[in-house]
């Protein structure tokens, strides 16, 4: 029983990390209907930037988010404005896959040239610390990641629900044509939305870099998980993304600990397929799609 509960705790904490990473992905899909294959690479890029700031200046990785997020926002906005906006509307969903994959490869190439392909991780003094609660171990950084994830998602919810920009985003998501007729500059909203999604990678990158070792190629494994989470949650649903990430974490950890790590990742995909058979739109896709 102890092993099972510990696995659930580990899974929830891991799920929190992934929820943070997937939130940007789902936001971008929600706004642009673009499956952003570069989101994993953006997370890894942010991890490298955070690592460099920590190594060079000793800035705490959580604080580096304040510096890295604006840079990622600008990068994301530039990618959308320069590479995605010119795509012809009818072909955009398909071509954007290629464009964002190219962006991912470009980021990976630059990171390899600059940092080489050795693994690294961000090692502040507290990175391996954990609390013992009733005999169970709770990693401090992972718990902080969960809290950061909730805070980020809360901030996004506020931004989308309580601001003029948020209303413009939601209007664009629900009906782009009607939004334009009502004066919403959908092009600008799209660029800012993509930038915002990229900015969430800053927080995700800092956390990922502390929890896992990474190298420029780490985004391949990451993107497959992020896409699975977003699909399970319901494309474009922030709440669904969180629940899907937690589900992925718990299912994988339980199977990894109690059955075999060989089936750990596969088990999540079994859950994904089972849910999609029953609800093709994902857990919250039908109800919440368009509402973010």
């Amino acid at each position: 029983m102890h092993e099972t509960i510990q696995a659930v705790i580990l899974g929830l904490l891991t799920g929190g990390v992934y929820a943070l990473m997937a939130s940007g992905q789902t936001l971008i899909f929600g706004v642009l209907k673009v499956v952003n294959l570069a989101q994993g690479a953006l997370v890894i890029l942010a991890a490298y930037l955070s690592s460099s700031l920590f190594d060079a200046f000793g800035i705490d990785p959580f604080l580096t988010v304040l510096l890295v997020a604006p840079a990622m926002f600008l990068l994301g906005t530039a990618v959308q404005w320069c590479l995605l906006r010119p795509l012809h509307r009818s072909d955009a969903p398909q071509l954007s896959l290629l464009v964002t994959f190219a962006v991912a490869l470009g980021i990976e190439g630059v990171l390899t040239l600059v940092y080489k392909s050795d693994y690294r991780s961000i090692q502040p003094g507290y990175v391996n610390r954990s609390w013992t609660v009733a005999g169970y171990q709770v990693g401090e950084v992972r718990l902080a990641a969960c809290l950061l994830s909730l805070a980020t998602l809360g901030a996004l919810a506020l931004l989308l629900g309580r601001t003029r920009f948020g209303r413009a985003v939601r209007a664009t998501v629900q009906n782009p044509t009607a939004a334009r007729l009502l004066g919403v500059e959908s092009g600008r909203v799209a660029a800012l939305g993509f930038g915002l999604g990229a900015a969430t990678a800053a927080a995700a990158g800092a956390v990922y870099g502390m929890v896992y070792s990474f190298n420029p190629g780490s985004h391949y494994d990451l993107i497959s998980r992020l896409l699975s989470i977003v699909v399970l949650g319901g494309l474009g649903s922030l709440g669904g993304t969180v629940i899907a990430a937690l589900a992925m974490g718990v299912v994988s950890a339980l199977v990894g600990a109690l059955v075999s790590p060989v089936w750990s990742d596969f088990s999540f995909f079994v859950v994904l397929l089972a849910v999609l058979l029953v609800r093709p739109g994902g857990l919250f896709g039908a109800r919440l799609r368009g509402a973010l």
């Binding site: 580990l10 790590p261 060989v262 990742d265």
Partner: peptide, 20 residues
């Protein structure tokens, strides 16, 4: 005795089971 896949980035469940 377990083999974990190359895609497994988080080995906490493996260590948890091993520790038991």
């Amino acid at each position: 005795q377990q083999i974990y896949p190359a895609e497994a980035t988080d080995l906490s469940p493996v260590v948890s089971a091993m520790a038991a």
